[in-house]
Design a protein around this nucleic acid. Structure first.
Length: 207
DNA sequence: CATATGATCCGCT
DNA sequence: GCGGATCATATGA
């Protein structure tokens, strides 16, 4: 088995989310559907959330919704928002700590036709570019909340090819009112599958 | 129990 | 650029 097809280990996720966020770029997200078919996509955009961060769901402490976010690293935290969209996060840090990385955009690789069917469009950039779109394309909803990415047969992350720091744009997170001072949005520089940025654009990266 | 709000997307202008 | 869709969650009465 080549290195790029190995699952990321628990230790990868057991770090602060602002460290895991950029390291998730270039990794491969794999989804196995009920009928055994595989869908996969290359992560190109993420955002980190932490407990002492007003923009984070974990800021006000443990609740039924955020329970998974406070659990052990390497699990999936899914939530429903705006009455129509699901968003998926990867739980980071240590057990008992409420931190996670939101997966915001990816490049479709395997099962593109199935993703297009689920999304109701053929346009490649409209399949997985945006947190709600990514979940719809891969069939991720409340039912997938809490999945263990190390042991599960439904969803996991492969090592893929990490992106060097010089190729990563760092900026303020999207769609939040507080916590915009933190440079915790990470994206692959120049990648056309990164979700559309709001006016103001990304802060130029670490190059 | 009631209500305000949101880590969004889409279509129209 | 703007607003509607649409509902789980958190919060306060």
């Amino acid at each position: 088995m080549s290195r790029s097809t190995r699952r990321l280990p628990r230790s990868f996720f057991a770090r602060p989310s602002p460290e895991v966020g950029p390291d998730l770029l270039g990794r491969i997200l794999v989804r196995r559907l009920g009928d055994g078919r595989l869908l996969s996509a290359r992560i190109v955009e993420t955002e980190a959330y932490q407990e002492d961060d007003p923009a984070s769901h974990s800021y006000r402490g443990r609740t039924n919704r955020t329970e998974v976010m406070f659990g052990p690293p390497g699990h999936l935290y899914v939530y429903f928002t705006y009455g129509m969209h699901h968003c998926m996060n990867v739980v980071t840090g240590s057990d008992g700590e409420g931190s996670a990385v939101l997966l915001r955009a990816a490049e479709p690789l395997q099962g593109v036709e199935e993703m297009a069917r689920r999304r109701g469009t053929d346009h490649p950039r409209a399949l997985c570019s945006g947190p709600g779109r990514l979940c719809q394309a891969l069939g991720i909803a409340r039912q997938e909340n809490g999945l263990d990415l190390m042991r599960g047969q439904e969803l996991w992350l492969l090592e893929g090819s990490p992106v060097l720091p010089s190729g990563i744009d760092v900026g303020s997170r999207v769609g939040i009112r507080s916590g915009t001072e933190h440079p915790w949005r990470f994206s692959v520089h120049g990648d056309r599958f990164v979700s559309r940025v709001r006016a103001g654009g990304p802060v130029r990266g670490s190059r």
